[in-house]
Simulated assay, not measured.
Amino acid sequence: MAKLKYKVEADPKNTARAMGRTLRISRKHAIELCRELSGMKLDSAVAYLNRVIALETPVPFKVHNKDLPHRKGKIGTHSGRFPQKASLEILQVLDNAKKNAEQKGLNTEKLRIKHISSNRGFTIKRYMPRAFGRASPKNQETIHIQVILEEFY
């Protein structure tokens, strides 16, 4: 497997980072969640993801929004969804980054998300047997999530 580097260079003294690799979640959901979480404080990001998992707050879809209904709440005029599976996976990556920050001795109350992004992973190739000895592809796409937390003052 190829070595995956972080997209953003960060000062290791006041930042902590984590990476989730080969996560089996939707790339579109991950892109929209990462866009929404970028720049948030860590505590508010975790609370936001927990509200999305509980189907209380929708995630506005600004790019991948064809034939999506609008949702209740103050998300503006954008349509939205509740990507629960992607929220759970990103919540685990944020928890790992928080634990890395604790290990470095950073103040976990003053952490914000400096960088979060999703990259395309490899495709798991499978086949579904069909009639008359044929087969159809049934591929599973994976993604990688990068998170860099920064201590702010």
Rank of each mutant, 00 (worst) to 15 (best):
K3Q: 14
K3I: 14
K3M: 12
L4W: 11
L4A: 11
L4M: 13
K5L: 12
K5Y: 13
K5M: 12
Y6D: 06
Y6M: 15
Y6I: 07
Y6N: 08
K7Y: 06
K7E: 15
V8A: 09
V8S: 09
E9R: 10
E9F: 06
E9C: 02
E9G: 07
A10F: 14
A10N: 06
D11V: 00
P12S: 02
P12Q: 01
P12G: 01
K13A: 10
K13W: 01
N14S: 08
N14M: 02
N14V: 06
N14C: 04
N14F: 04
T15C: 09
T15Y: 00
A16Y: 00
R17L: 11
A18E: 09
A18Q: 10
A18D: 08
A18K: 08
A18N: 09
M19V: 10
M19L: 10
M19D: 01
M19A: 09
G20I: 04
R21K: 15
R21S: 11
R21I: 12
T22Q: 15
T22Y: 13
L23R: 04
L23S: 04
L23D: 03
R24G: 11
R24Q: 14
R24S: 13
R24N: 13
I25C: 06
S26V: 01
R27E: 11
R27M: 13
K28C: 04
K28P: 01
H29Y: 03
H29L: 01
H29M: 02
A30K: 03
A30D: 05
I31W: 05
I31E: 13
I31Q: 08
I31Y: 10
L33C: 09
L33D: 04
C34K: 02
R35S: 13
R35K: 15
R35I: 04
E36D: 12
E36P: 00
L37P: 05
L37E: 06
S38C: 11
S38W: 09
G39L: 11
G39S: 12
M40V: 07
M40A: 11
L42D: 01
L42G: 03
L42Y: 07
D43V: 05
D43K: 12
D43T: 07
S44K: 14
